[in-house]
Amino acid sequence: MKQFAMIGAAGYIAPRHMKAIKDTGNTLVAAMDKNDSVGVIDSYFPEADFFVEYERFDRHIDLLKRKGTLIDYVSIASPNYLHDSHIRFALRHGAHAICEKPLVLNPHNIDALKVVQEETGKQVYNILQLRLHPSIIELKEYVAAEVAKNPNKVFDVDLTYLTSRGHWYFTSWKGDDKKSGGIATNIGVHFYDMLGWVFGDLVKNEAHLKQADSSAGYLEFKHAKVRWFLSVNYNYIPESVKAAGQRTYRSITVDGKEIEFSGGFTDLHTVSYQHILNGGGFSLDEARKSIEIVSQIRKQDTVNNKSDVHPFVAKVIR
């Protein structure tokens, strides 16, 4: 049984980490969040110690270590801009880090973390759950087979992801680009990771739309041309989806064929933890490509490229 600590226990994604720790037969020893709405812990680890002050949490982990209770892993589900600091905390306390996406906000953060990783001998793992989704694994195998037959094959891909959020989103840290990285980073980074994993190295990166609630652009990989659109605005969801009472819409088409991957998301954190505990996991280097993509999107100006624009952009710019 491995001993876990957690930073960011009150967030949206924290229960999936708690469930993953429990489902893999391990235990949560201590958790920290500046917000105290963490009653969900009772469903998984009611005996876990809890702290709302980072300094007291730090002292507690240190005292545990001095008494012989070593923390094997620190699960990090804190706001995006704090990931870098909290990963360092884990490594310096002699624990491996399992961090939510995005791992960090900029590529240079990865370079700096590699130094700390080498100094401590501990590893950093990023939750890149789409690489473990059965439909995406099947897609990767299909693409590899097609490329083997035709090494110059380039697929036409449309990525559309809308996950409705209320007014709270823009009041929280997620609505602050300096803290979340913006829409493309906060809700898109694991999709970009998946695209690079399936279709190869990045060739071109254009931003067509950058607004507080929506982002769109064009990515060209070695074996794919990708039009993408991301939004948290309910108004842009297709009417047929709204009529079904749904507030989320995911779609990936490859050469016009829909890739079915709408289900199976809730258990992917458990699968990710099993992957790490079995000697796998996705490293700093594997996270780099997606972080480079979102960093480029964030820093570049939008361009008017009508030939490669995602059709949903017309819903925003009329």
Rank of each mutant, 00 (worst) to 15 (best):
G8I: 09
G279K: 02
D267W: 02
Q274E: 07
H269S: 09
N278K: 10
M32G: 04
I297N: 01
G281P: 08
L82A: 14
M1H: 14
A144S: 12
Y44G: 07
L139G: 00
D285T: 12
V143P: 03
R318N: 14
E258I: 13
N186W: 10
L130R: 10
H83P: 01
I276W: 04
L130V: 04
R298D: 13
Y273C: 05
K153E: 10
V40H: 10
Y192W: 10
A10I: 08
G280Q: 00
S215R: 01
D42G: 04
V316S: 09
V116P: 00
V52I: 13
L219E: 04
E239G: 06
K210T: 11
L103W: 04
F191K: 05
F57K: 07
L103A: 09
V154P: 02
H86N: 15
V203E: 06
D23N: 14
A314I: 04
I110A: 09
L230F: 15
L128Y: 11
G166E: 08
E260Y: 11
Y125L: 10
P15I: 11
L130M: 12
N186Y: 15
P311F: 14
G245E: 08
Y73V: 09
L268S: 06
Q123K: 14
Y236D: 06
I71E: 08
N304L: 06
P311H: 12
V313M: 08
R66I: 03
A10K: 00
V38D: 02
K65F: 04
G94L: 02
M18L: 15
R131Q: 10
N126D: 09
E258T: 15
K122T: 02
E119L: 14
V303P: 09
V189R: 02
V189W: 03
Y161R: 12
V232Y: 05
V203T: 13
Y236S: 05
V232R: 02
L82Y: 02
Q123G: 03
I187K: 00
I71R: 04
S214R: 11
F4H: 08
S164T: 15
V198W: 06
A314L: 01
Q296T: 13
